[in-house]
Write a protein that binds this DNA or RNA. Structure first.
Length: 266
DNA sequence: GTGTCATGCGTAT
DNA sequence: TACGCCTGACACG
């Protein structure tokens, strides 16, 4: 499921597999029939990600804009793809494989100006290498009086963090989620940014969100981690903190549930 | 079969 | 703050 790491990973893998290829495209579900007809027969030039948004550049000049939302999912097959599900909004086939896209919130063709407008609404993206990202992050937090736990979900403050990473990043940096964003001290903001880059990069490489240090849960490698042992606090309310044994708490923040250790994060 | 839930976000109130 | 939207997996009867 999609936080920023999933999106950047999709951009990298889709570019590797399909860039330079001419595709034949359809919309099995029918809700993107006109768009699919425009893509059909075009060559994919490049794929880029910004926060949770994906942009596919076609030889025609059209840009395919995709936002997976909560449920969106890509499936890619090398050969013999199964029939698409009823919800498959976009399907394309190329000599290098078949791609299905279902459940996405946004699937549309846009022009370069519209892409700029999307990017302009987004905060710094920890998975893009641009200058002065930390200071941009710090400035945007300094303007917000909402809790840091809510600010991390605001894509205008920082682009790409979702509900799992926000809880885990605040645990990893020992920050109380209820601290007003503007009151998080400078050193903590720096560490939060550094940890965010580190964790999202790891997620982009592996395709999974694993934040625990394996020895802390009795494993020696990441591969050994059981599914329920990969995170420190997310969805662990009522269970003991992996570091101090204090019961993990939960509350709603920024419209979603958040989890934290009241002892480690204060 | 129905109901519930999910790593998201926009709009209305 | 509530609701709607997008889909699929799983629990339950």
């Amino acid at each position: 499921m999609p936080e920023g790491h999933t999106i950047h990973r999709a951009a990298r893998l889709h570019a590797k597999r399909f860039a330079g290829e001419v595709v034949s495209a359809t919309s099995p579900q029918g809700r993107f029939s006109r768009g699919a007809a425009r893509i059909d027969g075009q060559k994919l030039e490049s794929v880029t990600a910004h926060g949770k948004h994906l942009f596919y550049d076609w030889s025609s000049g059209d840009i395919l804009h995709v936002h997976l939302g909560l449920f969106g999912r890509f499936r890619v097959f090398s050969e013999d793809p199964p029939p698409p599900t009823d919800g498959t909004r976009l399907a394309w086939a190329a000599p290098t494989g078949t791609l299905y896209l279902a459940g996405a919130t946004i699937v549309e063709l846009i022009d370069p100006d519209e892409r700029e407008a999307v990017a302009a609404r987004l905060g710094p993206d920890p998975l893009r290498s641009e200058r002065d990202q930390v200071s941009e992050f710090a400035e945007r937090l300094a303007r917000r009086s909402v809790p840091i736990g809510a600010a991390l979900l605001d894509q205008r403050a920082v682009a790409g963090i979702g509900n799992v990473y926000r809880a885990e990043l605040l645990f990893l940096t020992g920050i109380d989620p209820s601290t007003p964003a503007k009151d998080v001290d400078g050193g903590d903001v720096d560490r939060l940014w550094t940890e965010t880059v580190k964790q999202l990069r790891a997620g982009e490489r592996s395709g999974r969100i694993i934040t625990v240090d394996p020895p802390e849960v009795g494993a020696t490698t990441r591969q050994e981690l059981r599914r329920q042992d990969r995170l420190y606090v997310y969805k662990r309310d009522g269970q003991p903190c992996r570091r101090c044994g204090t019961e993990i708490e939960t509350t709603e923040m920024g419209g979603r549930n958040i989890w934290w250790c009241p002892a480690c994060q204060s």
